[in-house]
Each structure stands twice: as C-alpha cells, then as structure tokens.
Simulated scan of single mutants.
Amino acid sequence: MAPGPTDLDLIDRKIVAELMRDATLPIARIADRVGLSQTPCWKRIQKLDATGVLTGRVALADPLRLGFGITVFVGIEAPDHSPQWRNDFAAAIEKIPEVMETYRMAGDIDYLLRVSVGSMEAFDQFYRQLTDMVPIKNVTSTFAMERIKYTTAYPIDTTHR
C-alpha cells in the first residue's frame, strides 16, 4: 500500500518540498537543508521513489519559448458512459500530445482537458483529430488569456511534525 500523507515524517516532507522546488539540487544541499547527512538523505529519497511518493523528476519549460503559447481548457460531454467509450476516449487522448492533462469530472462536463497549442489552426487540427477518433456529445473550449499563477509543487507542510 502506498504511504498516505500522515506516513511521511517532517524530514520526508522537507525532502519532497526541496525536490519539487528544484530536482537538480545535489544530495549534499538537500541533506543540509533538511538536517541530515548525505547517506541517510539519499536513502530516504530512494524510499520515496520506491513507495511512489516521488513519481518522476523533470525539467519544466516555458511553453511560449517552445511555440505553445495558447492554453485551452476543453470540456467534453460524453455521448454515453459505457466502459467501451471511456476506454476509446482514454486511448484517443493518449495519442494526442497536445493534451497535457485530463480529468474525469463531476458536474456539467464529463472530462476536462488542458491543451497546449501554438495557433488557432493547431487547435482546430487537435479538435478535428479528437472528434474523428471518438464520438463526443459536446465540446466546450475556453481559451486562457494569461497565466497568472502556475506551479507543480504541492503545498505540503514542512513546519509541523
């Protein structure tokens, strides 16, 4: 069973917070910041990896500098809720790299996608590709005008035991 938030002690939470801020930090610096020596710190990081608390280490990139200046939140209403449609939909969105995130929702829409594209033409191609791959009852697209706050780091408590 994967550890829950209460299974992580203060040191583990501090290590995770440091890695979420900057995964390129040397072990020595992380160890110093969390109050450990290098070997115990490395062992804790290995345990956090093995238990699935840490799911990967990546470099974050500026979407504008990569030509993905348009962020679109796409609401999908499913034509039905059969396992077959859900599987087909999941397979379709896995094949479309512009889909950055997908959530199954409660409420008026069934799925919410965050899509990154470089132009309206690219969004139209995405839309056509998706709707050719799987039947959809309704699609609602909302275009972001400005990204005001963005983070990949969860606000974990690093002050209390």
Rank of each mutant, 00 (worst) to 15 (best):
P3L: 05
G4F: 05
T6F: 11
T6W: 08
T6D: 09
T6K: 11
D7R: 06
D7P: 10
D9K: 01
L10Y: 07
L10N: 08
L10I: 07
I11E: 00
R13Q: 12
K14D: 01
K14R: 15
I15D: 01
I15V: 15
I15E: 01
V16Q: 00
A17C: 05
E18P: 00
E18Q: 09
E18S: 09
E18Y: 01
E18H: 01
E18T: 00
L19Q: 02
L19C: 15
L19A: 13
A23M: 05
A23I: 12
L25M: 08
P26M: 02
I27E: 02
I30D: 04
I30K: 01
A31C: 02
R33T: 01
S37V: 09
T39V: 14
T39K: 07
T39L: 08
T39D: 14
C41M: 01
C41N: 11
R44P: 00
R44I: 00
K47V: 11
L48N: 03
L48G: 03
L48K: 02
D49Q: 09
D49W: 00
A50L: 12
A50T: 13
T51D: 15
L54T: 14
L54M: 14
L54S: 15
T55S: 07
T55I: 13
G56V: 03
G56W: 04
R57Q: 02
V58R: 08
A59R: 15
A61M: 13
D62P: 02
D62C: 13
R65C: 00
R65Y: 04
I70R: 10
V72D: 07
V74F: 05
I76P: 00
I76T: 03
I76E: 06
E77Q: 04
S82G: 15
W85D: 04
R86V: 15
N87E: 09
N87W: 04
D88G: 10
D88A: 08
F89T: 08
A90S: 12
I93C: 13
K95E: 06
I96E: 04
I96H: 07
P97G: 12
V99R: 15
T102Y: 05
T102K: 03
T102D: 07
Y103V: 08
R104H: 11
A106M: 06
A106Y: 07
G107W: 10
G107I: 07
D108Q: 14
D108N: 12
I109G: 10
Y111L: 12
Y111F: 15
L112N: 09
L113K: 14
R114F: 03
V115M: 06
V117K: 11
S119A: 14
M120D: 10
E121H: 13
Q125C: 09
R128W: 05
Q129A: 12
Q129C: 11
M133V: 07
I136S: 08
K137C: 03
N138V: 14
V139A: 08
T140W: 06
T140S: 04
S141H: 05
S141G: 09
T142R: 13
T142Q: 05
M145Q: 10
E146P: 00
E146D: 04
R147L: 10
R147Q: 14
Y150V: 13
A153S: 14
Y154L: 14
Y154A: 15
P155A: 09
I156P: 03
T158Y: 01
T159C: 02
T159A: 11
R161H: 08
R161P: 01
R161L: 05
